[in-house]
Design a protein around this nucleic acid. Structure first.
Lengths: 223, 223
DNA sequence: TCATGCATTAATGTATACATTGTTTGAAGG
DNA sequence: CCTTCAAACAATGTATACATTAATGCATGA
């Protein structure tokens, strides 16, 4: 029901290419024509082409007329665009969740993710921390029943994924972020709509400023 | 530069199908298999298929396994999703514009659109009014340099286009909307960030409530 | 040596072919 | 008359073929 009964080549190509891009095995600037990618994936151009179109619409790739597919770098300005949108949308989701008072089961899961983040911070496991961070944001969105918002924001998360992974180790331990997640969760549980919104907004604004300042101080124009 | 040098069949199919959908010549619920659409457009399945994939990613169509492309109706719940996103994003764009104090030329254009809306209201020309409304929203977004936001919001505008056209004549003359546009513009010109944001938010919240109440009172579950 | 232009190469956009598989029709049997 | 099963049909997913056209490289000439 959730996954396709029959795995199609397009889906396969899409997932594999997306994975290669997000894991930085196909780094930004990487470029290859359709036939080459098709060969690499062991299928014909047709499904590859459709997968590339999809990746392009998600902002991970650009199709350049006679040059092939280009893995897009994410510039500081892209980052600004993306964080501006996240700053507007995610707090709404959080506020709406606080209003709706979701059932205990769902909140339990958010709670577990937050605990995982806290313990990852304590043990200095940055990868686990980043994973919990990602899960928190995605879970919160998924709980707020707005599929259009969820899907769109998820594509934005994907776009900044590489940048977050890179900067993860260029900054101090993310204590503040962790505290803020806890704070947001508390407000949601308490049903405090306005504070849920505000604290999420502050969380995003601070994270964006931090990320951009890291990019600047390390002279990373794009990732 | 703006348009493609060479009009491709995919682009042609995309534009024509989108137009047919938005103009309600292919109404919600309309369904046709790829070969039929290809025949209708006078080209092979390949470009049609790519155009349909694009329309699907924009939420206008759904591709159902052995049934063909289905023109999606927009339900009240879809409307809720869409307006929630607009309510979060557009006020940010307005606020940011108020902050940036755009040059007179651009504001001139917004002013002209607002005047057009006011005179359309005065003369009772609903189509001209709706056109000015649409242009105001799109222009404001375009002025706020965030392409991701602009593109996404534009797809949402497209999705609600039919519903807006239908309800346009089921409601009282849109005096309030017109006043609100003027108010928003004034705040932007004055550089009043917070009031630009607030008045736009109020504008969207009211419009959403109005639209949904019309759907309810006329028993229109979807459009 | 460097510029110019032609020929070759190669990538895309599109058409077509084909296998797979779900749907539907119609006939046969209860 | 309704149900069941099979065969024909049809749509998709994918592969392949092909025309067009941009890029590349090489040869030619100044």
């Amino acid at each position: 029901m959730l996954s396709e009964l029959k795995p199609t080549r397009v889906e396969d190509a899409y997932l594999r290419l997306k994975d290669e891009i997000l894991q930085n095995r196909m780094p930004p600037g990487f470029q290859a024509p359709e036939p080459e990618i098709a060969l690499h994936l062991g299928m014909s151009r047709t499904p590859v082409r459709e997968a590339l179109i999809r990746l392009e619409s998600e902002g991970l790739v650009r199709l350049i007329p006679r040059r092939g597919a280009l893995v897009l770098p994410v510039s500081a300005d892209d980052m600004r665009e993306i964080y501006e949108i996240l700053t507007a949308l995610e707090p709404e989701a959080a506020a709406s969740l606080a209003r709706k008072k979701p059932d205990a089961g769902c909140l339990q899961e958010l709670e577990a993710i937050t605990l995982a983040m806290e313990s990852a911070l304590a043990s200095g496991d940055l990868d686990a921390w980043a994973d919990a961070d990602d899960r928190f944001h995605r879970k919160l969105l998924a709980m707020h029943a707005n599929n259009r918002m969820t899907n769109f924001v998820n594509t934005l998360f994907d776009q900044v994924h590489r940048a977050r992974m890179t900067t993860l180790r260029l900054r101090k331990p993310p204590e503040q972020s962790t505290r803020e997640h806890r704070e947001i969760l508390d407000h949601i549980i308490a049903g405090d709509v306005e504070n849920a919104r505000k604290s999420f907004r502050a969380h995003r604004e601070r994270a964006a400023a931090e990320l951009l300042s890291i990019l600047e101080s390390y002279r990373l124009p794009a990732l």
